[in-house]
């Protein structure tokens, strides 16, 4: 990647093209002495759909969790929608409002109904009136085709339904970017499709998406770009066609061999 090469060793920020919504520059992160992210450079464009894959422990989840600062990076710069993530709370609040996240374990609030789960952030973070928050929640519950479950509690739903609610809950904040952290890994096989279908329909609407996933079929059909990470580095990134048919690095070939062989 020519762009990434230009950046190495420089500290002057490059001029930001208008359609870059997330920019990571020289991002480094350590857990004690173990380095989980090594000099990550990444530009995400508006409307772009990126799939991040790699072996477990490669830092892919950590990378997307740095974007909304569920994990703090120690060095480098992360800019989201023109706001640079700094030590200050205000920038973090602005960024988190614009970035939705879906987790592997769904993380719905078990003490609230599906509808209340979806209304909480619009009410308490955006400060919307109740009627409006409810209308938004119902709109997105219909969007993920689950409006009839609005008054149930998460524990009464299947895993696939819960994950679709989690997607709706994130969408209720009307985010500009959606982060998916292995959204289908905790699901029973028969429920994977309903969640992937929901994600595909989001993609069709032009949502900017970063997905950490091992669903290579999803990557092939939906992603604009596939990123392969190993040991905290971005080893390779390419269009899905090139990535799957013509992987350049040995590590990528080994990884693809392992996950595609079964």
């Amino acid at each position: 990647m020519a762009l990434a090469d230009d950046l190495k060793g420089t500290t002057v920020p490059r001029p930001m093209e208008k359609d870059v919504i997330i920019r990571m520059e020289g991002v480094q992160k350590w857990y004690d002495s173990f380095q989980v992210l090594k000099n990550i450079d990444l530009d995400v464009h508006r409307g772009e759909r990126i799939v991040i894959c790699g072996p477990s422990g490669s830092g892919k989840s950590t990378l997307i969790r740095c974007i909304n600062q569920l994990e703090r990076h120690q060095e480098g710069r992360i800019t989201v929608n023109g706001v640079e993530l700094g030590a200050h709370h205000r920038q973090l609040d602005v960024v988190r409002r614009e970035v939705g996240m879906v987790f592997q374990q769904f993380n719905l609030f078990p003490h609230l109904t599906v509808l209340q789960n979806c209304m909480l952030a619009p009410l308490k973070v955006r400060g919307l009136p109740k009627a409006e928050a409810k209308a938004i929640a119902m709109k997105y519950l219909e969007r993920v085709r689950i409006p009839e479950q609005a008054d149930k509690y998460p524990g009464q739903l299947s895993g696939g339904q819960q994950q679709r609610v989690a997607i709706a809950r994130a969408l209720c904040m009307n985010p500009q970017v959606m982060l998916f952290d292995e959204p289908t890994s905790a699901l029973d096989p028969e429920m994977v499709k309903e969640v992937l279908d929901t994600m595909i329909s989001l993609a069709e609407d032009g949502m900017t998406m970063l997905c950490v996933t091992h669903e290579m079929g999803f990557a092939k059909s939906v992603a604009h770009r596939v990123i392969f990470m190993d040991r905290g580095e971005i080893v390779e990134q390419n269009t899905p066609e090139e990535f799957f048919t013509n992987p350049r690095s040995e590590r990528t070939r080994t990884f693809l061999g392992q996950i595609l062989s079964h």
Binding site: N68, L70, H89, D93, R96, R97, V99, G100, M101, F103, Q105, N107, L108, F109, L120, A121, K124, V125, A166, R169, A170, M173
Partner: peptide, 19 residues
């Protein structure tokens, strides 16, 4: 995960605790 989900939605400490 509950703390993380609340934080990711933009809730700050008081709201996260309370709700």
């Amino acid at each position: 995960g509950q703390w993380e989900a609340g934080s990711a939605l933009g809730l700050r400490y008081p709201g996260l605790m309370r709700y």
